[in-house]
Write a protein that binds this DNA or RNA. Sequence first.
RNA 1: GCCGCUGUGAUGGAACUGGCAGACAUGCGUGACUUAGGAUCACGUCCAAAACGGGUGCAGGUUCAACUCCUGUCAGCGGCACCA
Length: 803
Amino acid sequence: MNYDFTKIEKKWQDKWEAEKPFTAFNDSVKQKYYILIEFPYPSGIGLHIGHPRPYTAMDIVSRKKRMMGYNVLFPMGFDAFGLPTENYAIQNKIHPADVTRENIKRFTSQLKMLGYSFDWSRCVDTTDPDYYKWTQWIFLKLFEHDLAYKAFIPVNWCTSCKCVLANEEVIDGACERCGAEVVRREKSQWMLRITKYAQRLIDDLDEVDYVERVKVQQRNWIGRSVGAEVDFKATTGDTIRIFTTRQDTLYGATYMVISPEHSLLQKWTSENPDEIRAYQEAAAKKSDFERTELNKDKTGVEIKGIKAINPVNGDEIPIFISDYVLASYGTGAIMAVPGHDSRDWEFAKKFNLPIIEVVSGGDVENEAYVDCDTGIMVNSPLINGLNVEDAKVKMNKWLTEQGLGEEKVNYKLRDWVFSRQRYWGEPIPIVECEKCGYVALPESELPLVLPDVKNYETTETGESPLASMIDWITTACPKCGGPAKRETDTMPQWAGSSWYFLRYADPHNNTALASKEAINYWTPVDWYNGGMEHTTLHLLYSRFWHKFLYDIGVVPTSEPYLKRTSHGFILGEDGEKMSKSRGNVINPDDYIAEFGADTLRLYIMFIGDFEKTAPWSYKAVKGCKRFLDRVWSLASGELDGQATSIDDISVDHEAAIHRTVKKVGNDIETLKFNTAIAALMSLVNDFYALPPKKADIRMLLTMLSPFAPHIAEELWELQGFDGYASEQNWPQYDESKTLDADIEIAVQIMGKLRGTIIVPLDSDDDFIIEAAKKDEKIAKNIESKEIIRTIVVKNKLVNLIVK
RNA sequence: GCCGCUGUGAUGGAACUGGCAGACAUGCGUGACUUAGGAUCACGUCCAAAACGGGUGCAGGUUCAACUCCUGUCAGCGGCACCA
């Protein structure tokens, strides 16, 4: 009988569909284990080969955890709001909801064809009003706690999507999604105060088990730096507050720079207003990208007729505007210390400004002395002779005493721009009342359902398609009953995914986002695997929302995910990133049809280190198919012996089986799926060398079932074993049985391998040394030499040191 | 510029905590079975093969022993970046 994977896979998938063996229970006595993968965006092109890598990995973990006796929650859903669907809808004149429904259908059937053990009864869809009701509810809570606010600010505007982007969505000055240029626009936008959580988002990383690169990247993004804010007086009488991390170098400040957008500029009358206005206008026109691109050539304009006064020595110093100072960081103003900052140094050279050395050890005439931690303060009466660190401490104290400033921590993290001028997103449940300002809709009016519109396109003025729905916009203020207008922007794609893992705990609840009991039972997520590309987007956003929900008592823990791992991308056969234009895209459907889902699952895990990128190889897929063919021909025939427990396995294979149980089990827990599969292949090779008994095959199928569940169940049934392979206990190994009775150990002379000997397991040192000396090859090597030292590593090797 | 990661056969990749480098797979080679083989099975496959030889990006060091630890250096990938 042949391995007819098409028939077998259909058979078992139908069975799982009917019997639902992978349902998670909210009232189980078993220990819970919550495994999460990032739910996909159901795009029109269907499942991509990148999807099955994390899904298969976590499916294997889920299946193994179930076999270990856990009540496993392994859910799936769809993050379905977003631009591609909207664009497709615009082009084809279909409602985005219809497109979404079709895409979800297709994704679901593709996922089912891969045999994943999802609990489909908990499937969620972020575009379902029953779901986004709670996304809106959380937004209202944020608004209530002053964490959502509307502000007129310069924003990132994607010229192609015609939409505002969050900082996290801008990559090298271009749109993260479409690659088009991002320009600066002033717009009134809803914002979320993620910055209020910056410190906790850093601190709590110490509490969770995330792979290090994720922690590093988040810390990097939040960008904490410790310094001080210091007030400089201007000759106009105004105060200019600056932020610096080098308060020790205050005596070296020979000029100031403020950003072209600084508010004081509106107030001041300088001697050169035209020059200043021209510079401001030029800076405003530049995109962020252009501004950073020009970083070699420093530009700026002095504000003539106005000076600043250095608070430490009373010196009058000039003030410049320059776009190397950002309005959005710190206070938008800096003191410039050309002696110890390379940007200031460059600027000072160009504009012929004085350079004062305040930390000794460098040569400030030739270049800024920046890495001067080991230097000693000079030319700084208050702190001369101190090292840099002590100087900072003393300076902080002095600034506080004088009322001139204080120690201050700054973050690169910006508040989250939360409005999108698009149709296919959650409506923001806020109205603007002429009298009361921004007013929240009452909870009873949720969900605020997305209305049908004729036209899904953003208007030329950059307004959401909802802006043309006059009937919908016009409403009454919930507070005073007066005339009010609805918010026409929608939420960003990241809204629905910021809390979806909570919904899985209790997906059909219509009185809360999930019941308290369900949340308390299932959360936090035990293991979350996802892509590195979400580290400073979804992962950061959802940690923020979770912390807020913790603060208002909705969830029991301040962190949503206990453990975070991340997979590498799969590249095309040419080693390049897959893309339509390169023509190297791999379609999973083709592989399921040609080799079957089990082979695809196996190969995608065998391809290489799970955490690294790996190139696809058609030929290597065939190797995995060959392996399953070999398993099939071994296990589909008549087999000898009993097969009721691990004790029935044959003596010949005992050590190999125990070793494999140990290896496969450990490797699954540490994401080493490739070596787990290699171990199973080795065992099968052993079985070819020396025929296995029935109990040996039973062990093999048990271990294979998380990886290749269809073939494992089929062979299990064929052999007449009890129940299903997937519901067996995960096998226990006996450490003492993992080694053969006789083992080969290496014999080295002077650290070089000179031969091997076979000795009984756990032989003592003297026995091994004697056995080594008796070995023919070794004896020849050491005759006429004196052994002066011997090193024995038990069951591994012996090293003879000779003279 | 700063931070992090990675360099191993023809290829993808193994190697626990310093203990036989190259598991497993691909590819290639030889043989068997066959009318046939792009199927299957068996064997071989780091280089060199004279061996007490050489070999994990490169140059050193520590050690009885180094892919693994240390110093320096080169290359590639990723993140951050006029962030004061």
